[in-house]
Amino acid sequence: MGGMPSPFRIGMWVFGGLLGLTAMEIAAANALPRPLPALAVLGVAKAGLILWFYMHLHQLWEEEE
């Protein structure tokens, strides 16, 4: 916690990333003939962002703070 990029700012960047990925999802759904693979990849990316930065998955294999 603390450090240079403040946690608030990381949260903001992640939120921006989620919005961007959502925009790409909609674009993929409208542009591609079979959007399922692209949607799956984008969905995994979004879930990964939330898991890692919002849910702190890394805490699981870190020592007690």
């Binding site: 999802e25 993929a28 959007p35 399922l36 969905g43 939330i50 919002y54 849910m55």
Partner: peptide
């Protein structure tokens, strides 16, 4: 908050599966 994010992740997958796939 973790639970809330989890619910959000579920929708991350449900939204394209229900609204976007063709």
């Amino acid at each position: 908050v973790k639970y809330w994010h989890f619910v959000d992740i579920v929708w991350v997958f449900f939204y394209p599966a229900l609204y976007l796939v063709r």
